[in-house]
């Protein structure tokens, strides 16, 4: 029963991959090896698609592998398999978290955790900066310090920064604008 197998395998991925979508990759390679549902090349392709479409990367790859294996229903089943452990585990944790979140020790702990979370966000931002505002690969290849900065991208960055401060619209508005500018005068 392919659907049951898909559910179980993606349930395992949801259960054992800690720390975001890319953490699911080793498991997907394992799936490719074990069942032959997809080849490693197809998997690389899928990751590229998952990263250039909206939505969590882990969910996008689950949908993709599920679809390739067993059609549209396969995509749905693989995705549901991935999120089921999250729902069970987070509901249990949320239940206790809400009970104990006012405890002084818990509050103190989270006062320490929040600055670290801002650091994590900054690290995630830095990853995007590297690929969007800097020519890191070009620099590593040539050590060409003058062109380490992608000036065209930085210009758009500065303009968007100004517009965001000035107008405070919904983030989705800016994402759409960014996409349109990219199509019209890109690639950056």
């Amino acid at each position: 029963m392919i659907y049951l197998l898909l559910f179980v395998e993606f349930f395992k991925i949801g259960l054992f991959s800690i720390g975001g979508g890319l953490a699911t990759l080793p498991f997907l390679y394992h799936l490719a090896d074990t069942y032959g549902w997809i080849t490693s090349e197809e998997l690389l392709d899928m990751i590229a698609v998952a990263e250039s479409t909206p939505g969590p990367i882990g969910i996008n790859t689950a949908t993709f592998v599920g679809y390739r294996t067993a059609g549209p229903l396969g995509g749905i089943i693989a995705t549901l398999g991935t999120v089921t452990p999250s729902i069970i585990i987070i509901v249990l944790i949320a239940y206790y978290f809400m009970k104990f979140s006012e405890h002084p020790k818990v509050r103190a702990g989270f006062n320490g955790v929040r600055p670290a979370v801002v650091g994590l966000i900054a690290a995630a931002g830095y990853e995007v900066v590297k690929i969007s505002l800097l020519n890191t690969e070009h620099f590593v290849d040539t050590l060409d310090l003058l062109n380490v900065i992608n000036y065209k991208a930085v210009a758009l960055f500065a303009a968007m920064m100004f517009i965001c401060y000035r107008f405070k619209k919904h983030p989705i508005v800016y994402i759409v604008i960014g996409g349109l500018i990219g199509i019209l005068v890109g690639p950056f």
Binding site: S52, I121, A124, G125, V128, V129, I131, S132, L133, A153, L156, F157, M160, M161, C164, P171, Y174, I175, I177, G178, G179, L180, I181, G182, I183, G186, P187, F188
Partner: peptide
């Protein structure tokens, strides 16, 4: 690719 290159820059702005 073009759309995505523009979106990524906006993502940097929003994250910042």
């Amino acid at each position: 690719q073009r759309a995505f290159s523009g979106i990524r820059i906006v993502v940097v702005v929003l994250i910042l």
